[in-house]
């Protein structure tokens, strides 16, 4: 168990900046989600914490100890990869046992710990199989079991659900959530799926183009987006954004007139969520219908 501190963590490849200086404190036992579109630097951030990528600048502290110059194996982390990274020549049992074996944990403990991890993710009947003989969801659970078998200080999960079908994703998501509740291990979880982020996270870090856009609880990010990027990225459907001008507390744009706002006069962007607004006889927006959609929750 440990907290993680990132101090001006930076990544550059030549002239290209992969991650602009990032400061973040992740509390002990927290479930933190790095959320953003592909290429936003979230995976790079995680890989630097894991030690699979060198930081170009800044410090990474795990449990108060600077780990920048440590090998991945010496950082006491466990990672679940997008494509699971299971060892194809080993059985499920051997896969789960591998971290114990290479770390020289006494043989006598292995069986108990492997079985406990396997039970946690409901894999006990597949222990003799090779990964090739498993379904995607089962492979994913092997990767999870391999991560929890060793009680590391930190879990890192890199889009662990993205190779699963929609139905399995929901149940595995619940499983991960439950696992975190049980183990209370500090977890960093990378995803581009905002629903995953909203359902799993204690706190979400929204990233775009190598830069942190907002850090906050799912509710804060949903209710008070820090900028138009976050507003347009979070929520399904995303927040409506309109260009217009504000004058004396009245927002005006084509087909739109909303009074009662507070803000400086001049050009502004106004946003609201579709589910907060409703169709009425008269209203602030008056325009012909462009399209109709039937949504389950609409």
């Amino acid at each position: 168990m440990a907290d993680i501190q990132l101090k001006s963590l930076t990544k550059r490849w030549g002239a290209f900046v992969g991650l602009k200086p990032m400061d973040l404190h992740i509390g002990d036992g927290e479930f933190l989600v790095l959320l953003g579109p592909s290429g936003c630097g979230k995976t790079t951030t995680m890989r630097m914490i894991a030690g699979l990528e060198d930081a170009s600048g800044g410090d990474i502290l795990i449990g108060g100890k600077r780990v920048n110059d440590l090998e991945p194996k010496d950082r006491d982390i466990a990672m679940v990869f997008q494509s699971y990274g299971l060892y194809p020549t080993m059985t499920v049992y051997e896969n789960i046992r591998f971290p114990l074996k290479v770390r020289g944990i006494p043989e006598a403990e292995h069986h108990d710990r492997v079985m406990r991890a396997a039970r946690t993710v409901e894999l006990t009947e597949f222990l003799d199989r090779k990964p090739a003989a498993l379904s995607g969801g089962q492979r994913q659970r092997v990767a999870l079991a391999r991560a929890i078998v060793r009680k590391p200080k930190v879990f890192l999960m890199d889009e662990p659900l993205s190779n699963l079908d929609a139905k399995l994703r929901v149940s595995t998501r619940a499983q991960i959530k439950n696992l975190h509740h049980e183990l209370r291990t500090t977890t960093i979880y990378v995803t581009h799926d905002q629903i995953e982020a909203m359902t799993l996270a204690d706190r979400v870090v929204v990233m775009s183009r190598g830069e942190v856009q907002q850090v906050g609880t799912p509710l804060e990010i949903y209710d008070r987006p820090a900028n138009t990027f976050v507003a347009g990225f979070i929520g399904s459907p995303a927040m409506n954004l309109m260009q217009g001008t504000l004058k004396g507390g009245v927002f005006e744009a084509e087909h739109v007139r909303i009074p009662g706002l507070a803000g400086p006069d001049g050009p502004v962007t106004l946003g609201f969520r579709a589910e907060d607004a409703s169709i009425a006889a008269t209203g602030e927006i008056a325009a012909p219908i462009y399209a109709m959609e039937l949504l389950g929750d609409a």
Partner: peptide, 27 residues
Amino acid sequence: IPKDLDESAMVDGCSRFQAFRHVIIPV
């Protein structure tokens, strides 16, 4: 051979060479 394999091994506790010997060579 996917890179994930070496990286898994290194996170699991192998040095680069151990990852090569225990995980990559068998494959």
